[in-house]
Design a protein around this nucleic acid. Structure first.
Lengths: 377, 377
DNA sequence: ATAAATTACGCAAACGATTGCGTGATTATA
DNA sequence: TATAATCACGCAATCGTTTGCGTAATTTAT
């Protein structure tokens, strides 16, 4: 009995082996596959080496201008490389070196004026350093921001630039980047408490000069359309607003400040509400050009003269501020410059050899661009 | 004598050998180096395999959900991967596979409204397909465009999206991309003669409906501010302008068409010149919103009523067209949608298995957005 | 004249994942 | 009940560069 079972088992094993082994269909397939592989496509440094009958390492070094290769050999190798139409495989090089000549950028949205200008500035600098730029959108969500950081890290980018999404409240992912030793620059919307490079706008002084400008023109009861305070930039603008009032001997009135008025619609509604009543204020300082625009439209609809009766100042210096009439006085954030500065700072860290690099915080001074909407109370 | 020389040579060789061989300084250095290497940093699939005492290949397959791995093993592997804090090295994977999950985008300028919207659309779709996006600016120069294509190809992107720079006249680089078999989509500004995927705006019909709109409102002598004709889009807009006139029984007047009027300043100057004289035209159709804006400002400066005396229509539906007053009628190009369409088309080619893929040309229908600047002659 | 440094190049081992092929074992199919 | 197909996994080659180390030959410094 046992012998019979044993026999069955062994027999089965053998027959299975044989049938598997001589599976003609599969064998034909593999032959075909091998044939396909034969048609080699790309030329590698190995090909160049074989062609010139020298070592691969010499070719590699020659192509990257290593000092220990004679100019003569370099020229020879480079010429044949061109002749054979050699294209370096960056993938292989990056893999071997464990790093890339690519930097990653995470922004809330690409097609917002401020960010598209920042991106422009970043790309400009990256290009100078001969680095590529991978761009990710967080779409203002925490989830996408996480994913973006994840893929950038998996792709071993040389460094990361990020402006935090509106939804993001926890800095864990940012920390993990730093812990991995990946150079990082936070810009505009940042976690203050995280120790990293930062590029900020001096929002406090930007707001300060805006409000100061209104006061200087004779406006006194100045409304402030603020953004959500948990975002540093809006908090700072609010502080600047208050400081400007205090410095001019005016008392900030909480009843004139409205949080979370950022869009045109919100600006319009709120303006209708506030300026529709008696004893109305005489100016608006909006933390956003769009709510300022909404205010202007509302004022026009109520037949209130700008700047004659009410002055308006916005923030961000969106292109349209120059095109509407009256032109909207606004605070320019030098967005392109901010991108450039952030990128340069990142490269400073990337190219830094020193073990203990100390992160920097740079603050850009915004400029008040005075137009008609605020000139003359 | 000869023996002596021989002796000298051999002696030299031997001493040099010995001194080189026992260079203590270098040896110490190499020891130190080796020591440094010991502190391993990243955990690989090999580590996971060793940890679980299984084959590396099994780990690899499990992580990429290969069908031939049991769910049980998959779970085990994935769990330990998480436990060991494993991060996949995309570089290695990309290298091995010879391709990346990255697409490249080349645009003249990132921070132009149209392109930043396109980029937004592209990123949106790329993200859905779990691809990354590398962005390059040509800055409207041929040289940068070449370099961009070069680096994208060296980085083995899965596909390329491009809108030709203003300076580019020769399509050689575009051809080389196609010859290398890299999926390609040209959009907006394209080489018509190149056989590739294309996404275009129907500029002819866009212009047609714009001019038709003006005619319907009673305007008759319509000026056209055109762009340079060698760029397909401006040529098409000009054709649409003529066609609309002809279809309405009007005769196109060459004296009312001005090439290369694209900026606000150019629009302003030309409008001052044309409308300052007697027997002035009664409408402007500009191939650019900016020259249309220039026209509006000029007309205002000359106290000519818009739309009462002169109607104005622009092209591109820049954001500001909605903010100025009167609102500028313009042609919307659905720029975000164009980016999405182009990206989807690219992925169609990338994911295509068929050997002989036939490139497509998609044309998006622009929409006339009617605002006050053209309503009522 | 000797020691030390520099020049110029080759050898071969990485880097970390993927994947074709092989091998038993288990199911499904004829 | 043969036979075929599928399942589950391991082995080892491979992708194209880079780079540490080795070796002579030559130059420079002492």
């Amino acid at each position: 009995m046992i012998i019979f079972l044993l026999y069955k088992i062994i027999y089965n094993a053998i027959t299975t082996y044989i049938t598997n082994r001589f599976d003609t269909k599969n064998n034909l397939l593999s032959l075909f596959r091998k044939h396909c592989v034969l048609k080699k496509k790309t030329v590698t440094i190995d090909d160049i080496a074989r062609y010139l009958n020298i070592a691969t390492s010499t070719v590699s070094r020659a192509l990257s201008d290593h000092h220990s290769i004679s100019d003569q050999t370099k020229k020879l190798i480079k010429d044949t490389a061109k002749k054979l139409n050699y294209r370096p495989n960056s993938l292989a090089a990056n893999f071997r070196k464990g790093k890339t000549k690519t930097i990653g950028l995470v922004v809330p949205r690409i097609n917002r004026n401020f960010f598209s200008n920042v991106i422009h500035g970043v790309e400009y600098v990256a290009n100078q350093f001969e680095y590529s730029l991978i761009i990710c959108q967080s779409n203002e969500t925490y989830k996408s921001e996480l994913e973006a950081i994840e893929t950038l890290m998996n792709n071993r980018v040389a460094g990361i630039l990020i402006s935090i999404s509106r939804e993001t409240r926890k800095p864990g992912h940012i920390k993990s980047v730093i812990e991995k030793g990946i150079p990082l620059v936070q810009f505009d919307r940042v976690f203050e408490e995280i120790k990293s490079n930062k590029v900020l706008n001096d929002n406090l002084n930007g707001a300060y000069s805006a409000v100061k400008g209104l006061i200087d023109q004779g406006y006194r009861r100045i409304v402030h359309f603020a953004g959500p305070y948990y975002i540093n930039i809006y908090q700072d603008r609010y502080e600047g607003y208050k400081k400007a009032l205090l410095d001019s001997g005016l008392t900030p009135d909480e009843k004139l400040v409205f949080e979370n008025i950022l869009t045109r619609e919100e600006g319009y509604e709120k303006t209708m509400e506030i300026f529709g009543k008696a004893n109305r204020p005489d100016a608006v300082f909006a933390a956003s050009d769009f709510s300022a625009l909404g205010a202007m439209i509302a004022l026009k609809d109520m037949n209130i003269k700008i700047p004659g009766e009410v002055g308006v100042v916005g923030y961000a210096n969106e292109p349209f501020t120059d095109y509407i009439s009256p032109g909207l006085t606004s605070v320019d954030q030098h967005s392109v410059e901010m991108g450039q500065t952030a990128a340069r700072l990142l490269f400073e860290e990337i190219l830094n050899e020193d073990e203990n690099y100390v992160p920097k915080t740079l603050t850009l001074k915004p400029d008040l661009v005075i137009r008609d909407s605020s000139s003359g109370g």
